[in-house]
Design a protein around this nucleic acid. Structure first.
Lengths: 217, 217
DNA sequence: TGATATATTGAACATATATTCAATATATCA
DNA sequence: TGATATATTGAATATATGTTCAATATATCA
């Protein structure tokens, strides 16, 4: 016999991980189409042919990455939803964390870029389009619900909660896209500026809140 | 003799315009690389070969479009700068117009998408990268100055004006990108939500102001 | 109408690159 | 150590598409 199943399985997963990371890095820089298989293989440190041992095509890698990215975003929104605080604090806290994450996490920026890229192109694999169709709106719906609860509570400004959710995510996404190509280290971002869009005046002062949770991994 | 210079010149300009529009529509949907010359030619209603009579390459069209797009954005920011009102009103008015434009102008959405696409890819022609390098920051600087003036005047919130300018444009850009693939007709956007990021409390009520100027053409 | 300059076409060419595949290497166990 | 299953390589293949070009159409003016 040769290697055990588990050993091969481990090699397989490691390789796939390396390939995914290499592909993500290339896709966000060059996009799906101008990224060549050779680019991914080189960055992953393997031969072109080996790539096909793990993924059937370039498209399949892309779909895998899109799925990951969407799940991460959804996971982040769920972790906000499930926080044990009032709606107002959920909004404030998540904005604080998201801005901090934009400043510090390359993975987050890559994730935003990849999703934006995919969302804005009709030239991506059908499977990727389906995933986006299916998952894209979940974070918007989660925030919408929180905004609604905050309005009932009297801590969130009036206005269509759908609209507030759109402003919430598009601000964050716009910022992430800007930051991914413009890491302006001289400017420190203050999340409270964004928070001012949603919180009524009396709720805007900074309060102490847990610093040990992370919204996005 | 054949046609006069002017007649040929006119045909030339008309054709180039048609080609540019077709290319913009395709680039925005598919990106520079997955857009084929044939796609552009078909949308423009001409043969592939003719395209090369007017543009030397696909890249050259792209560079032309990027240049247009950047100039439009810069022009919009200058028209705000040159308004005959106080800084606070400039911010309020331009946000009102920009949001309105996002809801109504496909050209504006396309422009934002094209610039975002170009800014986020290293796989675009060098000439396009140079143009972006050269022009991208102008609108940010214009808004930064206005924010600064508004702070002196006491109508704009405190904080690094560079940061405020970043929030200003990234919010608008994020919104435009979202809207270009999600024309949510059931949601009416209220620019005052964004304005709340920048204007101090007492300046936030709606005031009457000219409705006949347009920020972006 | 004929001469001429430019517009226009679409097939041919050149090239880039996704994918396949035959050959080789490697690791494990009997 | 030898058998074997999988990993790995890189050259060969197939295909897609950007670009060129020879041929044709068209519009104007003398």
């Amino acid at each position: 016999m040769a290697r055990t199943k588990e050993q091969n399985e481990k090699i397989r997963e490691t390789r796939k991980e390396v390939i995914r990371n290499a592909a993500l890095s290339q896709f966000v820089k060059q996009g799906l189409f101008s990224t060549r298989i050779q680019d991914i293989a080189t960055e992953a440190g393997i031969a072109q042919g080996l790539l096909y041992h793990y993924y059937a095509s370039k498209d399949e890698i892309f779909v895998d990455l899109i799925n990951d990215a969407l799940d991460k975003t959804i996971g982040a929104s769920y972790s906000v939803r499930d926080m044990d605080t009032d709606p107002c604090e959920k909004i404030r806290f998540s904005l604080e964390r998201l801005v901090e994450t934009i400043e510090n996490s390359q993975t987050f920026l890559d994730t935003c870029r990849l999703i934006t890229q995919a969302t804005n192109s009709t030239a991506i694999p059908q499977a990727a389009q389906d995933l986006i169709q299916e998952k894209r709106n979940i974070p918007y719906q989660v925030i919408e619900k929180i905004m609604e609860a905050g309005q009932k509570e009297g801590t969130i400004i009036a206005g269509d909660p759908k609209m507030l959710a759109i402003f919430f995510w598009t601000s964050i996404n716009g910022l992430a896209i800007y930051y991914s190509t413009n890491k302006n280290r001289e400017v420190k971002l203050d999340y409270r500026v964004i928070a001012a869009m949603f919180l009524i005046e009396s709720e805007r002062e900074d309060k102490n809140h847990a610093k040990d949770k992370t919204v996005f991994k």
